[in-house]
Write a protein that binds this DNA or RNA. Structure first.
Lengths: 348, 348
DNA sequence: ATCTTAAATGTGAACGTTCACATTAATTAA
DNA sequence: TTAATTAATGTGAACGTTCACATTTAAGAT
């Protein structure tokens, strides 16, 4: 059953040539006669020879491997990013090592990077939206491997691709304000994520700019369940809001459910907006007004930039920034006249 | 800026020992004196030496790398599987190469496997729920690399871990029947997926066993949007159903939305059930009755079984089967009395 | 036919490890 | 003290490639 693994030498022997000639055939080197090439290719096919990339990596001192590092894949973005990165990498002849960090501690990150370095990966794409390690520390750990970060802090001098979260937060908040909302509450993402911080702060700022006082803000963990809990808390502790800005679409689902449990309709009593535009959000009840982040574009630009930095270490360090887009659907409308709806107790 | 990469020899030189001694320190070999060990470790730390796993792989003829192969990650299961597999692999000292197949054609699969073989991966986990290549072909392509398939066809003599989809389909259909439903329609998954086929066929069978004639079945592609389109088609071409079994939770979302557009309430007019139990489905409107598949368990067993097969090629070939579980929430109820609701035209 | 040039093929070394063995140093037993 | 044993360290070869040459063969120019 267990078949043998053949080498250049095996093929060479069968074909009656030297290993170097076989190597040349494998790598499409021009200077090999058509006759020899054909003979060697035949043997390769018959034997089922697969060039050993490990050996190749060793001598070439590069592995044709990229790594993608994520910090949790519970939400839509990272998953999409991994998928896009894999496709882009594969098209360019790179394989992708996937490494997920559960706890974004210095030590876990160090361990993961150490493993990747040992594997001689040619570059690292870090979806690193989490506070917990500075870029300098990251760089120190990365040794000499090029790294591009996705969605780190905006404004940092770091090779990165980033969605302008502040812009997104501004347009969605302004959308609500323009509709006539004044009492706006928030369910934010976990505030150790750069994106969540940016959205939260910009929400505050946009409110102030409009001369409005922000209502309560509760922190969620991106999950629908946390959105549900957060909305219940809001309803208990600071009710009366006519609009709710939520850190992502999934939390929105939980929040809307909590609202329904309180006999509040969306958007009748409360307008709700999300973030991400996951494919499902168009089919929520009601279809969700949200901010679309183009993860395809994010992934593509990320890989392209990383490869540039791999092939030319002098590629300038910059932040490619991508603008999100407002998607208006049916979860928002002008606030109803009886703005002050009856406050209800949560049915625990 | 560009730092040097150190080798065993470099460390050896700095520490004044031979490379073999350094190797022993790195691999925690017992026979090295505490004094030497300390000195070497100090140099390793100071130099920031990382053992080159590529070189190690070459001589050891194994790479400590596993690969996971997916066929689209648009739905929840595969994503979870990748995540679980990565964690399990990392804990056991393996890295994970992620390879996604867009078009499940023989050629694409061949190419992807060829690349993995060249990389000397130690084992492959294939989430291969798609028709398009037989196990024998797969095995032929895999050369001598152990492979474990996730969710292939039930009943095949193939090393695999599998959810008993027929069982799941049976319990959820029976749940509806026991509730009193007789007119049950279906939105299936794409029928080139083994899981989708199994669920579809079992739905048919369970209906017949109960002496019921199945209503129309429309094929979706797992997306919420396809669920929406499918439900509209059902409503146009074969209305009157009081219950709808849907191939996964995401399509359910679209279907419910289509139902609402027709002024049909869930579960008032139509009961709806899904498949998967994604974390969001508890917060749908209404919370979804569905069949839970334990992807964590699937991943864990898969990796464990694969590793067994790697370390002992004589590990018996078997199908580990996992039973899904009925989760009853609020999208199902006994059919209302006026079973025949007014048939409406789709708006558009 | 002979010399020159280009094309085709072959050889030795290297990449950074580990393995199997050889050697040296330190310890114990007589 | 000396031989016998164990612990600690070192050496050469190998893993399967590619690179930089060296060599051979074929083709063209005189």
């Amino acid at each position: 059953m267990k078949r043998q693994r053949y080498t250049l030498n095996d093929v060479a022997e069968y074909a009656g040539v030297s290993y170097q000639t076989v190597s040349r055939v494998v790598n499409n080197h021009p200077s090999v006669s058509p006759k020899t090439r054909a003979r060697v290719q035949k043997v390769i096919r018959e034997l089922g020879y697969h060039p050993n990339k490990v050996a190749k990596s060793l001598v070439a001192n590069q592995s044709n491997t990229l790594a993608i590092m994520t910090f949790g894949m519970n939400h839509y973005g990272p998953t999409q990013m991994v998928l896009n990165t894999e496709r882009a990498a594969k098209n360019l002849g790179y394989d992708l090592i996937f490494s997920n960090i559960n706890e974004p501690t210095y030590d876990q990150i160090r361990k993961a990077l150490s493993s990747l370095i040992g594997r001689q990966v040619d570059g690292i794409l870090a979806i690193s939206p989490v506070v917990g390690i500075t870029y300098e520390e990251m760089l120190e750990l990365c040794w000499d491997i090029p790294i591009v970060q996705i969605d780190p802090q905006l404004g940092l001098e770091v090779p990165s691709v980033i969605v302008d979260q502040k812009y997104g937060s501004r347009i969605i908040t302004e959308h609500l304000i323009n509709l006539g909302h004044q009492k706006i509450a928030e369910i934010s993402g976990p505030l150790n994520w750069f994106g969540a911080i940016a959205r939260h702060e910009q929400w505050l700022e946009t409110m102030h700019e409009a001369g409005l006082t922000p209502m309560m803000s509760v922190e969620g963990d991106w999950s629908a369940n946390s959105g549900y809990e957060a909305a219940r808390k809001l309803l208990m502790e600071d009710p009366g809001f006519t609009a709710l800005v939520v850190g992502n679409d999934q939390m929105t689902l939980g929040a809307i459910y909590a609202l329904y449990q309180h006999n509040l309709s969306v958007p009748g009593d409360v307008s709700v907006v999300g973030f991400d535009d996951i494919p499902e959000s168009a089919f929520f009840s009601p279809p969700l007004t949200t901010v679309k982040q183009d993860f395809n574009q994010l992934g593509e630009i990320g890989v392209k930039y990383l490869l540039e930095r791999i092939h030319n270490p002098d590629t300038p360090i910059e932040q490619h920034v991508i603008l999100p887009k407002l998607i208006v659907r049916q979860s928002t409308k002008t606030p109803s006249l009886h703005e002050q709806y009856p406050v209800q107790k949560a049915n625990s």
